[in-house]
Design a protein around this nucleic acid. Structure first.
Lengths: 199, 199
DNA sequence: AAGTCTATTTGACGCTGTCAAAAAGTCGGC
DNA sequence: GCCGACTTTTTGACAGCGTCAAATAGACTT
């Protein structure tokens, strides 16, 4: 109920708080539970105050999606930073990705929910690609990859996400998932020059 | 407003009609537009009659999901049947899959929407796997695959779906999509014994 | 102190999924 | 040929949703 002109950062802070509350709601109670009215209540504002920061619900969800993608990037970045050799970095990237997908399931699903052309989202996606290009670029520079890092990264991302999605949607069971993950490592390793020289 | 005891097939017919209307609604106006009340109206029944056939909305959507998966299988099956050599059959399977994904986008998305453990859904998924195992099994029998058909199929399915999902979610643009599809064919061909013997 | 400008809240609308109660229709027994 | 039992369908009602217009509350300016 305050009436003075808000500073830029005050406004941004409020906006950010709304996104945080919404993200927490998605993560803890699922996509469905993330309703505008609940977000508002939990952020201790009236039900239509979020409309000061977002055009509509979809705009809010878009922001949450971008934030979720940033969080995924954070996890991967940290994991990569903690590893100390090249192999470790590539492995850590993949492991962190899988951990996020199966730990923060609702957020992960949100990230890949259909069409979202906003600039925030594109930026977040670009950041993730750039990040993944790190270890893979190293591999390329070391002459270990038959493909440019960016393209190998795309193939790996697609395959990994696809397998996760199939598992999540119940198209493959737990057992098949594990086996397919191993198979994929085998097959996709072809994107790298023969690791053991004798496969 | 009829009051007599309905035969098994009458009941099934009505149920099927509801599913068909709902599926048409999803395909033509999107997932959001598929509301219970609209389905009921379009099927010319009162708003709560669908509850005679489905426990709740999610149960109806589950049925639509299974039906959509069956339709995808139909398309793939027909495409495979129309091709006459092994290479053609494998290619036709993939092409039909991609066509469906980019043509019936809402239905395709629905298929992979999270968790759906119902038996109808499992059966539909099993049918699709069995179907895909046809051409791939041939390839295996011809000694062209380094993996059992079922496992190679899983890898291909995951990679293909993942790429489609990335494209759909705006994580890769049109251009990257085409390039990655080609890259994936290249890399994944390793699941087959060297096609040209000299890659 | 009055008036202006801005941020927030409140009221209201049409839509949704859902269920209990009412209604409508068909059939078997008399 | 009507009556009561049974089954299916419709209607009424409720809470919750996203959304917007109007009303409100608060802080600056003059």
């Amino acid at each position: 109920m305050q009436g003075r002109q808000l500073t830029r950062t005050e406004l941004d802070d409020a906006r950010r708080r709304v996104v945080e509350v919404a993200m927490a709601l998605v993560q803890e109670e699922g996509r469905e539970a993330c309703t505008l009215r609940r977000v508002a209540a939990e952020a201790e504002m009236s039900r239509s105050t979020p409309y000061s920061y977002f055009a509509d619900k979809e705009a809010l969800i878009d922001a949450v999606r971008a934030a979720a993608l940033h969080r995924l990037s954070d996890r991967c970045e940290a994991a990569v930073a903690a590893a100390d050799d090249l192999g470790g970095r590539v492995g850590a990237l993949g492991q962190a990705y899988l951990d996020f997908a199966f730990t923060q399931t609702s957020l992960y699903d949100l990230i890949f929910e259909s069409h979202s052309a906003g600039p925030e989202h594109q930026a977040a996606a670009a950041r993730y690609r750039r990040l993944a290009a790190g270890p893979l670029g190293e591999a390329e520079a070391a002459g270990m990859s038959t493909l440019p890092a960016e393209r190998l990264g795309g193939v790996l991302w697609a395959a990994t996400h696809g397998l996760i999605a199939l598992r999540r949607a119940g198209k493959v069971d737990e057992e098949s998932f594990e086996r397919l993950l191993a198979d994929m490592r085998e097959v996709l390793a072809f994107g790298f020059v023969p690791r053991s020289e004798a496969a």
